[in-house]
Amino acid sequence: MTLIATESLTKTYGGRVTALADLTVAVEPGIIGLVGANGAGKSTLIKILLGLLAPTSGRVRVLGLDPTTDPAAVRARVGYMPEHDALPPDLSAAELVTHLARMSGLPRTVARERASEALRHVGLYEERYRPVGGYSTGMKQRVKLAQALVHDPDLLLLDEPTNGLDPAGRDAMLALVHRIGTEFGISVLVCSHLLGEVERICDTLVAIDGGRLLRADHIAAMTSATDVLAVEVSEGTDDLAARLAALDLPVRREGRLLLVPLADDGTYDLILGAVAELDLPLHRLDQRRHRVAELFATREPSNA
């Protein structure tokens, strides 16, 4: 089943600001990373998926349902964690999450049980009876995640879940999101402007920029094709580059390094052979797992 599918989705505010432009993408269940700079249209897309905003044109389906015509059915099966502060400071986490569980239609006792379960899963125990106003940013983010999880949705929409967290807090939050996506059996769309963060946990990556789709693919497909070998020699870098180019290897200079795309094991032999023939002092030869960020960095200018 397709988790989320959009077709020529466009959203303009007041006919001037274009938040989404002709976005067509389809993703399968799993952990989906939605990346893009601030203002790329990530939050707008999430709000359209929830049926909170109506698209200017185009079609959208979430869990096989249309949020523009049947928002209640979509929202019943989706949990949403907003980006901004959304917690009343004078309520305790337990009270707030219980109340919001009831707002999702859970009966009173079930709501209370599932609220403490959800808070336990995000790592809040005794502190859940204290007013939220005294919580740290990390704890507040966890409460926001718990309220999105409390009614057992099939899909979680997380808008910048690591916002404002320190590095340790980021890691903990990402681990939690990864656990929800793998162990809990709930699909997650996690949205971030930090590519390095989401690529660690997601199966599928959707990159948007200026409301347009840059690329959507499985993360494996994106990274495997981009593994490169980094070669460093103490001298004669230019000679080696020319030699490798002559061997039909697409060489790229990066400072003192030569980057060669890794096609198969034969690439190693070709490079080692070339170094040996030129009798150069080989300093280093290692495989570099290309970060997706570099993928976009090298792609964007060529596309533009």
């Binding site: 059915a73 929202r75 989706v78 949990g79 917690l87 707002m103």
Partner: peptide
């Protein structure tokens, strides 16, 4: 800002 939490429900 709790309203988005209400309005993202049915």
């Amino acid at each position: 800002g709790v309203l988005p939490l209400y309005f993202s429900r049915p």
